[in-house]
Design a protein around this nucleic acid. Sequence first.
DNA 1: ATAGGGTTAG
Length: 528
Amino acid sequence: MRCSPQLSHRDFVAVLSRCSTRAHLEQLHAHAFVTGRAAAQTTTFHLIRFAALRVSCLAYARHLFDATPHPNVFLYSAILSAYVSASAAASPPSYGHARDALALFLRMLRHGRPAPNQFVYPLVLRAACGVGVGIVRSIHSHACKSGLCGYDVIRTSLLVGYSRHGMMADARKLFDGLTERNVVSWTALVSGYARAGKVGDAIVLFERMPERDVAAWNAIIAGCSQNGLFVEAVGIFGRMVGTGFRPNATTVSCVLSACGHLGMLKIGKLIHCYAWRTCVGFGSSVLNGLIDMYGKCGNLEGARWIFDEVSDRSLTTWNSLINCLALHGHSKCVISVFNEMRGEGVEPDVVTFVGLLNACTHGGFVDEGIKYFELMQHEHGIEPEIEHYGCIIDLLGRAGRFQDALNVISDMRIEADEVIWGSLLNACRVHRQVELAELAIRKLLELDPNNANYVLMLANVYSEGGLWEEVRKVRKFVKEENIGKKLPGCSWIEVDRKTHRFYSGDDAHPESENIYDTLDDLAASMEF
DNA sequence: ATAGGGTTAG
């Protein structure tokens, strides 16, 4: 590539916009330097954006920024935007980048110049979102003191900041105070309610939106999916396509995820075809969604096939495969994929270890499970989350290692939840540990006093131990306390385009008798 | 010359 020294600024930007590689970047930077153009901050501005967005070389962008003596507000917004998009693209989202962005914002405040404007605040707020609500609040007060809180863009960004932390009352106040509401602020609110678990409110708001765009549809589809309303997510996707909106990669990955949860392989395949036919294409998010969908639907060959097709496997790609193999009990496979992953130098994260520990639990690989639990903490510096504890307690409990299990529970830095005590209870039932079972039940009832299942499980423990007097007491207790008026559990499966729905304990299905017989056989073959 | 909303793995 050759650039004439007489290039106008306009032409320089035009050349930049046609380039795409690191080599181009270095060449243009050198060219700007030699021709004296590099001294102009507007040149640096374009180079920073190019380095960050096209070449995705954050270090280069930062170098350009640091080499500028008194960066103006445009340079600050360019580098902030670089950090924010790099942080979002990283998996898991990088706190490092968010902190770097906040440090730059603090520098602006300390120096007093350039003064942050309505373009800077939204970027800083996006960085602050992932760090904590305290920082969002203090940025809010800075914005107000600077008299910038009248900008709807800033208020919308604040709305997002508060709603990410479940503070919907504050978010709602900001929304109501907007001078003009648009599709962006509506979407932010819908997405906020959904993230806060108020998916009903989110749906009502979505229906009331004066106009919708792809992001708005994506927000509600993702929101339904996050809250377990998978049928609704797929339904809304259908409505979206029916209304003539063109789904993008985000939409497709959300719907694929919903299909996976529902086991709707047919619809998942249709969406696969859709991605194939339309310009949605096969970016990494769609590919990861496909692995997840095929895997969850039990089509592991499909999942593996897609996986093998992915050229740049991200952590998510590996995690998708590992978790669907774990889900279907291919424990040995999980361990070998995990080793393969480490062989390729991909650093596992919390999600990887959930899959791995699940595999060890279901495969009965007790020693391996303990080994990986240790490895996760000591070699990878990952603090176990409740899911990891759930796996390890299940693992130790099934192996009858109750003292070890109790030690782990007492060392936990987070409160044990119903999954933990439930796993322990189940293990107590299998290994006839009546006293420990009573402890587990007590803990479970503290967590959820109205759940009759726990009490009935206790009754089972007693009856299997032949303690008939205790069984009678438990049943009486259930009756008197009137516990357990919960909606029955429900599951469904799609067979030949027909959906079969089952409530717990119901016998309405025409094949009910056969189904229960098969279930009994399954239960019998699973007995210890 | 610059900006705000939607993302997948447990």
